[in-house]
Design a protein around this nucleic acid. Structure first.
Lengths: 222, 222
DNA sequence: CCTAAATTCGATACCGATGTCGAAAACCGA
DNA sequence: TCGGTTTTCGACATCGGTATCGAATTTAGG
């Protein structure tokens, strides 16, 4: 053991595959970017490792120094996208700070809009993520977790509104949160990924309006 | 030409592949049923033609007498399921007969419940259909058409309610119908196909309630 | 029974993409 | 310049599933 100059790709991967050196990290990033381009163009199944390495301008063997399969590089790309979505959605509904209930509508609208914008930007990869969620357990897991987290956040908001008497107390927060998440996410899917045509501003504002109507939100009791 | 006893599978397919005889029709149906079983168990990608023919108790070659590819037999199965969904959803909201607007809620609720029941019954294939919609253009087309039809029906209902003053006129029927369809269909997907746990009756009634709330439906103006 | 049409059989050709490997090349500190 | 380390290279083995084909078998009519 302790040979110098590792011979097999697998050994290299385990040794310094994550990018032990600046150069290595660059190549890895290059491959990740190229993979994304190819996936967006061809989809997961039709994408070939050969195309990815061509796009990255490296050789076939190099790919396997950094990823042990096409699937793994896909997961890598998806991880980036997921993080971006997470950010866009998480921030705005922030729990701390101004608790003024009248701000709720504004925050909700902002959250939805941010989500839709990020969705549009990444629609191709998100569509693939949706598809791969049923093929690869790990991608599926990631999708489920993202959704669960989001639902929990929404459910908490609903409960707060119920305590404040702005939403009927007999509405089940979990079911409602699930349905609302479905409404927004799936509408985005058909609109932005599948190309159903809608006027941008109309769609966004209608979505927020329906969101509020669905939970029976009553503006105020002045 | 005009040989008797066709030699190649392709020729047979074109000649009497649809089932020229009772026996042939039976085998074809057998294969279709077996395919469905295997797809439901293994998914599309992992399903092998070898498994399908084993399940059907016929030989490999026979399969290709009736279908020219794994994809085509999948389309066949999907066609059956689509038809079943279509039926369940179409009937109840029927446009003729009792136009009593107070019946609307009842009809809507019934339609949603039927949809959810059929979805549960076929959840595995519907999940696969969702997946394949992004892989095979023909399946994708079918899905889009189904959704479009459904949206148009819903939009028409909304317009009627608007004319009757039960729903605000400034709500865009198309966007609303799209969002509602997304809400119900995608909620069903996560609940019935992905196994998110919800109480059955609670989920169903909440869905209808939110549906109505989302369009700003006002029961009556007595 | 006999023949022709209809159906079934299953060994095999085929295929292309993935992932491996041994060695060359580039890099870096001394 | 040198030795060791890190990275790159690209020809090639491997693999498993799809689809094919010519022959065998079954069916139905006369």
């Amino acid at each position: 053991m302790s040979k110098s100059t590792l011979g097999t790709a697998k050994a290299r991967r385990e040794q310094y595959g994550q990018g032990g050196t600046e150069r290595g990290r660059r190549t890895r990033a290059l491959l990740l970017a190229a993979a994304r381009t190819v996936f967006e163009r061809d989809g997961y199944l039709d994408a070939r490792v050969a195309d990815i390495v061509t796009a990255a301008g490296v050789s076939h063997g190099t790919f396997y120094t950094y990823f042990d399969s096409k699937l793994q590089v896909f997961r890598g790309v998806i991880a980036e996208v997921s993080a971006e979505i997470q950010d866009a959605v998480t921030v705005p509904l922030g729990e701390r700070g101004d608790r003024d209930p009248s701000d709720f509508v504004r925050r909700l609208d902002l959250s939805n809009r941010r989500f839709l914008d990020v969705y549009r930007k990444n629609h191709r990869m998100l569509m693939l993520m949706e598809q791969m969620a049923t093929i690869d357990p790990e991608v599926g897991e990631r999708r489920v977790l993202g959704r669960r987290r989001h639902i929990e956040r929404i459910a908490a908001s609903i409960r707060r509104l119920q305590r404040e008497g702005l939403v009927p107390r007999d509405l089940d927060p979990r079911v409602a949160a699930g349905a609302l998440t479905s409404m927004v996410a799936n509408f985005a899917y058909h609109w932005l990924a599948m190309g159903e045509a809608f006027d941008e501003e109309l769609a966004k504002s209608t979505l927020t309006r329906m969101w509020l109507g669905a939970i029976g939100y009553t503006p105020a009791r002045s």
